[in-house]
């Protein structure tokens, strides 16, 4: 049960980020830096199926987190969080076709090691 909920928490968060990034890339950057353009861009996201799917994934992650809290101390979640960083970077490269060069990979390695130590 713990492993399943952990997978929901981390997987939901990673899936939510990937779906939201895909939604916003399709939609494109706001027309200008004016506040109105920013708000219009946010409002438009709610008409975007990918964005709505990301909200569902985030919600699943949050519910999983609450369920996990109800019977486990959450400190053990941390290594899974670090694993989420690795998976999300890899999936951004594979699924979203982002350019992740040696320098960004090296940075990712340092960040993941650091998150393990700090959190």
């Amino acid at each position: 049960m713990t492993a399943f909920l952990l997978a929901v928490v981390v997987g939901g968060g990673v899936a939510g980020d990937l779906l939201k990034a895909h939604a916003m890339r399709r939609q494109g950057a706001p027309q200008s830096t004016a506040g109105v353009a920013m708000l219009r861009s946010l409002a438009a996201a709610f008409a975007n199926g990918w964005f709505l799917a990301s909200l569902a994934a985030y919600s699943a992650s949050f519910v999983g987190f609450l369920a996990l809290l109800s019977f486990r101390d959450v400190s053990f979640v941390v290594p899974a969080t670090a694993l989420g960083y690795a998976a999300e970077t890899l999936l951004a490269r594979v699924v979203l076709s982002e350019r992740v060069g040696p320098r960004r990979w090296a940075g990712a390695g340092l960040v993941i090691a650091g998150v393990c130590l700090i959190a």
């Binding site: 980020d17 990937l18 939201k20 990034a21 916003m24 890339r25 939609q27 494109g28 950057a29 706001p30 920013m38 861009s41 946010l42 996201a45 964005f51 960083y85 999300e88 970077t89 951004a92 490269r93 979203l96 982002e98 350019r99 992740v100 960004r104 940075g107 990712a108 960040v111 650091g114 998150v115 700090i118 959190a119």
Partner: peptide
């Protein structure tokens, strides 16, 4: 959400780990 409309997810994810 807005940032992801023009910046890579892999960039945002890693840089915002400064939050820790």
């Amino acid at each position: 959400t807005l940032l992801l409309s023009w910046v890579d997810l892999s960039y945002v994810l890693l840089v915002t780990s400064l939050g820790y």
